[in-house]
Design a protein around this nucleic acid. Structure first.
Lengths: 339, 339
DNA sequence: TTGTACGCGTTATCAC
DNA sequence: GTGATAACGCGTACAA
C-alpha cells in the first residue's frame, strides 16, 4: 500500500462539506454542534475511517491523557497486580498507561522520569518515597503531578497512597515476641534504595527494643528479590552461631525460598524454626506449611492510585495522602516458642 | 509557578546564537555539525534544561519510537516476566513501551489495538494468533507492524516468536503415557479465545489417540487462571466416576492449585495421583512435591520479540517467525503408574 | 451555529 | 556546515 496516508481532519471536513473547526468540535464538544451537521460529520468520519492524530492533538491541546508509571520491576507479583488494577481503572477513565521500570536503580528511575515527562505524560506514578530532592524539584518545576504508591508518608513532599510498612511489620513483630520468640533473624530486600524494605527492618528492630532485646542481635541478611536468593539467605542465617527461632522475611517470595531451604536442611517448620512473610500473595498459601504473613490489597492500591492521580490532574481536589489497612494472616509457619 | 513554559528549540537556538535547524541537527545527527557549534548548542541545552517536545517531534517525523503491547493480564507471571524483558531490551534501543491489557477479551483487545495505533505506535506486540481477520486487515491498511508472541505458527498472517505449544505438550503427554498412565484428566484455561490453551488440550487428545486411547474419555475442566480455580477444578475432576491417575494442567498456577487441593483431600502425590504443569515458573519448584512441567524461557521470548519487532520496523529484514525451544522438567509430582 | 486563521515545536528540504 | 522556511494535523480565539 505505497503512498498510503491516514485521513486527516481536513479530509473529513471536505467530505462533510464543513470546516475543520466544526469537525474538531464534533470530536471534543459535540453538544456545540447542530444535530444535522454532526450527523454529516460522523458519517464522513466513519466512511474515511478517520482517527485523530495523537501528536497533533498533543501539540494543540497540551494534554495527552497518558499517565506514566515507573516501577522497580514487573516480575514482582505485587507490582504486577497493582499495576494491572491501576491500568484497568485508568482505562475506564479514558487514560492510557505508559510503563517503565527502573530495576531498583535510582539513576535509571530518574532517567525514566525524564523520558516520560518529555513524552508529555499528564501525571506520574512512582513507587516509594526514596528519591533525590533534585528530581522532585524537577517535577515541580515542570508542573507534573506525581503520586507515590506502595508507601504512606503524610509528611513527604509527594502525595502517597499506600500502607504504613513500619506499623504493619511492627504489629507482626509484636505478635511474634508475644508468643515467646527471643532469637530473631531477618531476610530483607536491599534497604539502601528501598524505603519499604527499610521500614520493615526498622520495625523489627524497634519492637525488639520495646521487648527488652538488643536490636544489634538481629541476624539480618539483605539480598535480591527471588526464591533462590531467599534460600541462600536462609542458609547464611542458620550458619550463624546462634540459631534463631524465627526468621522474618521482607516479602512472601523470600519467605517461600527460606521455607523451602529449611526443609532441604531437614528442619521442621514451625517446630524447629518459624518463618514469616509479607504481602499475602498466593505463594504464601501453597507452601507446606502455609506462611504467616501481612495481608495487603495491592489491587486496591492500584485502584485508589488511579482515582487519586486523576483527581489531582483534573484539579478536582487538593492532594492528601491515603493510608490503606493491613492485617495479620497467622498461619502454620509460625508457632509459639517452647523452650 | 504560573506562566511557566518549557524551553523550546527556538530558545536554545537564540541562546546559542544559531538557527533552529542546527539545534535540531545536534539532536538527531550530531556528526553533521561542527564540533565548535555543537559545543555551544549543548551548553545552551544544558543551561536551559531543554527537553524536546514529543508531540512536535512526532508531527514532524512521523515516528514515535514507541511500541505498544497488549497482553491478557500482567497478573500472569509468564506475561509479566516476558514483558519485563521486552521492555528492558526495547529501552536499550531507545524505544518506549506502551502497555495495555485485554483481560482475555477479544473485543477489548481490538479496542486497545485501535487506541494504541491512534497514539502512533511504531509497532505492536500481541499475544497469540487468535483474532479476527478484520483487525489484522486494519493493521495492514494502517501499515503497522505487528508481532505475535507466546505462540509460533509459521503459516499465520502475522510473524510470531514463540514456541510450539502443541509439540511441547505432546512431548510431555507421550512421556506420561509411556510410563503407564491410561486414565487422564486435564485442567485448562478457557480454550475459546486462547490458542495456547487450545493447542495444549489438543496435544493431549492427539497423544491419547496415538496411544490407542479414546480422546473423548479425557476428563477436561476449563477455568479461569488462578490457584483457587485450579483447586476447584481438581475437586470437580475427582468427583468424576473414574478417578484419573494423571491430571495435566495447562499451566503451573493451575497445577499448584490442583496439587494443594489433592493434599487437602488426603491424596498422596504422586502415589495416588500425578499432576503436571506448564511454563516452569518458580511456583512449580516450591510446592511439595515439586511439579513436573514444561520449561519455557519467557524472558528469552521477550528479548527475541524486541529484537524482531525493531528489525521489522526499521525494515532491516523481511519477517520470518522464530521458534523457541522447550524442554521437559520431570519432577516428583509425576510417577510411573503401577496398577 | 459555523468558518477563518493562527499557533503549537519540531523535522526536512532547500539554498547558500 | 549552516540558515531560512515550509510542512505536520489539530484546537481555539475571534469573527461572522
Amino acid at each position: 500500500m505505497p503512498g498510503f496516508s491516514a485521513p486527516t481532519l481536513t479530509d473529513v471536513a471536505k467530505k462533510a462539506g464543513v470546516s475543520t473547526a466544526t469537525v474538531s468540535r464534533c470530536l471534543n464538544t459535540p453538544d456545540r454542534v447542530a444535530k444535522r451537521t454532526r450527523d454529516k460529520v460522523e458519517d464522513a468520519i466513519a466512511m474515511l475511517g478517520f482517527t485523530p492524530n495523537f501528536g497533533a492533538r498533543v501539540m494543540a491541546s497540551k494534554r495527552t491523557y497518558t499517565i506514566g508509571a515507573i516501577i522497580p520491576t514487573m516480575e514482582n507479583a505485587i507490582f504486577a497486580r497493582g499495576l494491572q488494577a491501576f491500568q484497568d481503572a485508568l482505562h475506564k477513565q479514558g487514560y492510557t498507561l505508559l510503563v517503565a521500570s527502573s530495576s531498583y536503580d535510582p539513576k535509571i528511575e530518574e532517567e525514566q522520569i525524564r523520558t516520560l515527562v518529555s513524552r508529555g505524560v499528564d501525571g506520574l506514578l512512582l513507587i516509594g518515597h526514596d528519591r533525590s530532592s533534585e528530581i522532585v524539584n524537577y517535577l515541580q518545576e515542570k508542573n507534573i503531578p506525581a503520586l507515590v504508591a506502595w508507601a504512606h508518608d503524610p509528611n513527604a513532599r509527594l502525595p502517597s497512597v499506600g500502607f504504613d510498612n513500619f506499623a504493619a511489620m511492627s504489629e507482626l513483630a509484636r505478635y511474634v515476641l508475644s508468643i515467646g520468640h527471643r532469637r530473631i533473624g531477618m531476610i530483607s530486600s536491599w534497604t539502601q534504595t528501598n524505603d519499604r524494605a527499610r521500614a520493615r527492618v526498622m520495625a523489627v528492630k524497634h519492637v525488639m527494643l520495646e521487648g527488652g532485646l538488643n536490636p544489634d542481635n538481629l541476624v539480618l541478611i539483605e539480598t535480591d528479590y527471588g526464591i533462590e536468593t531467599g534460600s541462600k539467605a536462609f542458609d547464611t542465617i542458620i550458619s550463624n552461631s546462634r540459631l534463631p527461632s524465627i526468621v522474618f522475611c521482607g516479602n512472601d517470595v523470600l519467605a517461600a525460598g527460606a521455607l523451602k531451604q529449611a526443609k532441604v536442611r531437614g528442619m521442621k517448620i514451625p517446630e524447629d524454626i518459624s518463618i514469616t512473610g509479607f504481602d499475602d500473595i498466593e505463594i504464601s498459601r501453597i507452601t507446606t506449611p502455609r506462611i504467616t504473613t501481612v495481608h495487603v490489597s495491592h489491587r486496591r492500591m492500584g485502584t485508589e492510585a488511579s482515582k487519586k492521580i486523576i483527581r489531582i490532574i483534573e484539579k478536582k481536589a487538593f492532594w492528601q495522602s491515603t493510608q490503606l489497612e493491613t492485617s495479620l494472616e497467622i498461619r502454620a509457619s509460625l508457632a509459639k516458642k517452647i523452650d
